Computed example of a mutant assay.
Amino acid sequence: MTLEAFGKLFKPAVDKSTVLRWENGKLPVRRVLEIEKVTGIDRRMLAPKMFKGLEAAE
């Protein structure tokens, strides 16, 4: 998936340069939660330092 296509998964859509910043570690907590919702990837996998020690949601 391209950066542009990934950005379009969000409402409102985000620019590919923003997605690139996320890939490079500049990922705000609220975006981690949005990405988790859109992709199904657990927040602890997306940002392990932010969510260290949290139990998995069931």
Results as ranks from 00 to 15, higher is better:
Gly7Phe: 08
Gly53Leu: 13
Ala56Thr: 10
Glu58Lys: 13
Asp15Gly: 14
Gly53Lys: 05
Glu58Pro: 07
Arg43Asp: 01
Arg31Ala: 07
Arg30Lys: 12
Glu55Tyr: 00
Asn24Tyr: 04
Val29Ile: 07
Leu20Asn: 15
Val38Pro: 09
Phe10Thr: 00
Gly25Phe: 08
Val19His: 03
Leu33Arg: 09
Leu3Asp: 00
Trp22Phe: 14
Thr2Pro: 01
Lys8Thr: 02
Ala5Tyr: 03
Glu55Pro: 02
Ile41Pro: 06
Met1Asp: 13
Lys11Val: 07
Lys52His: 10
Pro28Phe: 07
Met1Val: 14
Leu54Ala: 09
Ala57Glu: 10
Asn24Pro: 08
Leu54Pro: 02
Ser17Asn: 09
Lys52Asn: 13
Ala47Asn: 11
Thr2Val: 06
Gly40Ser: 05
Leu46Trp: 08
Arg21Lys: 14
Phe6Trp: 06
Lys16Ile: 07
Met50Gln: 15
Leu27His: 04
Asn24Arg: 12
Thr2Gly: 12
Glu58Leu: 11
Leu27Thr: 11
Lys37Cys: 05
Val38Gln: 12
Gly53Gln: 11
Leu27Lys: 10
Ile41Met: 11
Phe6Cys: 08
Pro48Glu: 04
Glu36Ile: 01
Met45Lys: 15
Met45Ile: 15
Glu4Phe: 03
Lys26Gly: 03
Thr2Trp: 01
Pro28Met: 04
Ala47Cys: 10
Ala13Ile: 09
Gly53Thr: 05
Glu58Trp: 06
Phe6His: 08
Lys8His: 02
Leu9Trp: 14
Lys49Gln: 15
Val19Cys: 03
Ile41Tyr: 06
Gly7Lys: 05
Ala47Tyr: 06
Val19Ser: 01
Phe10Ala: 03
Arg31Val: 11
Met50Cys: 13
Glu23Met: 15
Gly53Cys: 09
Glu58Thr: 14
Lys37Ile: 03
Pro12Phe: 03
Trp22Gln: 04
